[in-house]
Design a protein around this nucleic acid. Sequence first.
DNA 1: CCGCTCATCTGGTATAGACCAGTATCAAGG
DNA 2: CCTTGATACTGGTCTATACCAGATGAGCGG
Lengths: 243, 243
Amino acid sequence: MPENIATSETGSPLYLRVRDQLAEQIERGEVTANIKLPSERVLAERFETTRVTARLALAQLEAEGRIYRSNRRGWFVSPPRLIYNPTEDYSFSDNAVSQGRLPRTETLEVRCTVVSAWLAGKTGLETGDPVVLVRRRRYLDERPVLVENIYLNPRRLPGIKDFDFNRSLWKLLRDQYSVDLVQKKIEMFPTALVDPQASALSVNAGTAGLCVNRCSRDAAGGFVEFDEEFWLHDTLSIQVNVA
Amino acid sequence: MPENIATSETGSPLYLRVRDQLAEQIERGEVTANIKLPSERVLAERFETTRVTARLALAQLEAEGRIYRSNRRGWFVSPPRLIYNPTEDYSFSDNAVSQGRLPRTETLEVRCTVVSAWLAGKTGLETGDPVVLVRRRRYLDERPVLVENIYLNPRRLPGIKDFDFNRSLWKLLRDQYSVDLVQKKIEMFPTALVDPQASALSVNAGTAGLCVNRCSRDAAGGFVEFDEEFWLHDTLSIQVNVA
DNA sequence: CCGCTCATCTGGTATAGACCAGTATCAAGG
DNA sequence: CCTTGATACTGGTCTATACCAGATGAGCGG
């Protein structure tokens, strides 16, 4: 009776034993950050099983944040998570660089629109009020890791729509408008990314993500901006200090 | 040519069309919180497809936090997320009750042990220092939603191991030790739950979760407790205010 | 050199079964 | 009445296979 290669002491499911072997290889550094894993068909053959089971093992590692997939290109080892503090004014780029990463920001869209019922509930604005929407996509080492929708108050920030949003928004508010963001309401929850966010990040609908919403006001309590961020779940670690 | 029931205008994959129909039923309230969905075999038959595809659709809804599974019992509609602020001293029970939920806390284990290298790195203690470990499981409406490992400083909290941990730890520290937790370092990241946390919550390894770590110190900067929480991903929404 | 075509490789979706291991239910037996 | 045990039902795991569509890279033609 030929025993499966991944068969070992335990009676655990085959796909978890395959997972364990792959995880070991990653930990031993045989495959490292952003290195491509063997194809699903090769893995299935190597572990003497089928693609379905190999994919279960890969999905497990993906859920743990150890590997990620690139559409129809293959599976890759996840780099370390970016440490991120959403309570502080900060520059995404500076933060990424200080952690040895290569950041990039892409402005997808700048549009004048009006406050929806949903946004009104989040910000306290009135439905129909004017608002500027900025959509951006951000990369770490050329992997897209988040998309965000920023809603800016054009009354508080006249002319805002004509600026360059590929630079730090926080520096823009500070230098051009002398805005001091002192009040923030932050909301975070894990969820699956669905369209349109999923396609903007070139991942399948259902990929695990983290949604971070942030409502910022100035010292007088006036609404400045609402920021809705959609991160890939394996790319960040939130850190907050309370002193 | 018999067309599939879930076949519609779009050319999107079948499992996403099945997802859409189930999501609609949930939104219309035809199935509501904690109600069991039809079995996978029934769904497969109803949508004229196979269990594999039905399971893809269910996994999608699970990833979005709309439904959850109970081992070999079936799929159920997820109740609303618990709103949770990890920066504030608070009682899990009070918080749950105020949101109309029924909380329950179970102490799994209380044990005197020593600081591991990992814990030393997180707390600044020395490896080998004494520490009290408390493991708890918490429920909302009789569904287990989180397990936590609490590491308490026995030097700062003499006799702590003999208290009842089914009540609020925060109230215990306040009333019995007059501790004021003024410094906190909080870390949060989405990940998959693996053993032993997965089994403690009666979910499969790989179920999406959120890990929340919190290191608390008193006014003098002395280490009081380190708390490691493992939540099911669909059960909470983090909310933090910065004033 | 550049740009195009096309074969090949990749993961994505889907079918059609199979057996296993817990759960729930209820009738039979104490 | 309660307990027990058979049983049907549930999701969990797994095999084997097929076709599709996007990504890639080699090679050809300009």
